[in-house]
Design a protein around this nucleic acid. Structure first.
Lengths: 103, 103
DNA sequence: TAACTATACCACTTTTTAGTAAGTTATTGC
DNA sequence: GCAATAACTTACTAAAAAGTGGTATAGTTA
């Protein structure tokens, strides 16, 4: 099913409209994190979904990946400028949930 | 998989984090619409998904449904106060998509 | 009386998303 | 030699989301 190109909202939802993407982006707002640390922050995510989701975010240029050539591996993730530009939206979603869940 | 109750973002995504929900809400921002008209605004949605999605929005108190007892049926949908409180977020998502898609 | 209307339901199938569990890598330290 | 490590990767399965096509309704109009 094709999306309506005329609706930018659709464009946005295609980029971040999944279960885990907003969560991962949100947890990177404050600081870059090592792969394992970030994953532990996202309660409930499976190893597979984490890798898969962050790969897509990377492919879409919302997240960057920095690999340190050491053993054992060290990988760091952070937001790109494009990713950072989502900050108001992510905070908005979070704030709305906080407020609404108290009603 | 349970969601992290501690993260309000998760709460919000549970309410509107699907393919069609934000679209439907967005198209109701300006005015209440008859079922058929609304559905035609959402390009690509199937009849079944429309009904199913709007039922959930109604159940969650984001959308109200007004039925006129006439034949053929007339049904109107609109945003509740709770639904309207999502306006900044919906517009934010739309605006972000518009800006980003031009880069 | 038969077609038309707007809305919504149901059964069924396909597609997408998510979860589990195991295996891979290359080096350190015992 | 072998376990421990961090970050994946793969094969398989389960669950959720979405699509298709058909049916019901009951007045109005032709």
């Amino acid at each position: 099913m094709k999306n309506d190109v005329k609706c930018p909202l659709n464009y946005t939802m295609n980029l971040i409209g999944t279960k885990w993407k907003p969560l991962i982006l949100f947890h990177l707002l404050e600081e870059n994190l090592r792969s394992g640390v970030l994953q532990k922050h996202i309660s409930g995510i499976s190893n597979k979904m984490f890798t898969q989701t962050i790969r897509e975010l990377e492919k879409d240029g919302l997240v960057f990946r920095k690999v340190y050539p050491v053993v054992p591996p060290k990988v760091e993730y952070g937001l790109t400028e494009r990713g950072k530009s989502l900050e108001p939206i992510l905070r908005g979603l979070d704030a709305w949930g906080l407020k609404d869940s108290k009603i």
